[in-house]
């Protein structure tokens, strides 16, 4: 309710007053207080462009936070890449501790499960595809294929 009231008040009163007054040429744009949109507010609702900027920054920060939580191993590898520098050396233990913490809370499972699905698709053979459509191997051949591992005769990985 409060956000609706705030939006209504801004739209009905504040914007009209600001529009009637016009921009203050004596002040820089930085000196004009600009409202920070709350999380969940639609960007660009008001005529002022600053909400779009702030919302974009907020979106970037949310994305960064999601990456830090669910892709903590990426932080570790980035810190390792920077390990030659002093900053990198100090970052590495922090990144590793963070990665361990994310492992404990189970946040890394999301990426691992998606990777597993992609690996299955990557190593699928034509008979696996045929099996999906009901024309695949008999159960014994299928089991042998599973026991032999994920490689198929058509994978370039075998040649290496």
């Amino acid at each position: 309710m409060s956000s609706f009231a705030l939006a209504f008040r801004r739209k009905s009163f504040l914007d009209r007053v600001l529009a009637a007054e016009g921009p203050d040429r004596t002040q820089s744009a930085d000196a004009v207080p600009r409202p920070i949109p709350p999380v969940g507010q639609r960007i660009g609702e008001v005529a002022d462009r600053s909400p779009a900027r702030r919302a974009a920054l907020l979106a970037l920060l949310i994305a960064a936070a999601l990456l830090a939580v669910f892709n903590s191993e990426g932080l570790v590898s980035t810190a390792r890449d920077l390990a030659e520098s002093r900053l990198g050396r100090s970052l590495l233990p922090v990144a590793e501790r963070w990665d361990d913490a994310m492992e404990r809370v189970g946040a890394k499972r999301l990426m691992a499960s998606v990777r597993g699905l992609v690996l299955d698709a990557q190593y699928a053979s034509w008979s696996d595809v045929a099996a999906v459509f009901g024309a695949g191997d008999d159960p014994i051949t299928a089991k042998r294929r599973t026991d032999d591992g994920p490689y198929t005769s058509s994978m370039p990985g075998e040649r290496r």
């Binding site: 660009g44 919302a55 907020l58 979106a59 949310i62 960064a64």
Partner: peptide, 13 residues
Amino acid sequence: EDRSALTLGAVLG
């Protein structure tokens, strides 16, 4: 473009 900042961040992240 009609989505909230939260949605934009979630889509990007």
